[in-house]
Amino acid sequence: MNRSTKPITDSTGEMDALLRSFFRFEMPSPWPTMARPSVLPASRHAVDVASRLALAASIALLLLASFFLADRPSASPVPNFQLGPGEAAKPGKLPIPPMAP
């Protein structure tokens, strides 16, 4: 690639011109604007309060549910079977097959 090979002298003018051109090239143009965030991010304090409230509500719901279920009468009460001596099963439920000779 052809390029001017005239060396840069130490003269102030040429150096200044070169550096100004360099930095002008480097600087964004047009200068970008910065859009302000339209919605501010939730602050840490607000997040903390919200999460604690959610946790408290969850625990309260759990406790209420457990109390409600504990007070409720059972829909199918367990029958009170009395097994006699030598009985290992409820009568009539499990017939014992006859022993083979």
Partner: peptide, 8 residues
Amino acid sequence: KAQGIGQL
């Protein structure tokens, strides 16, 4: 100068 960089 050492790099031989010329004018713009």
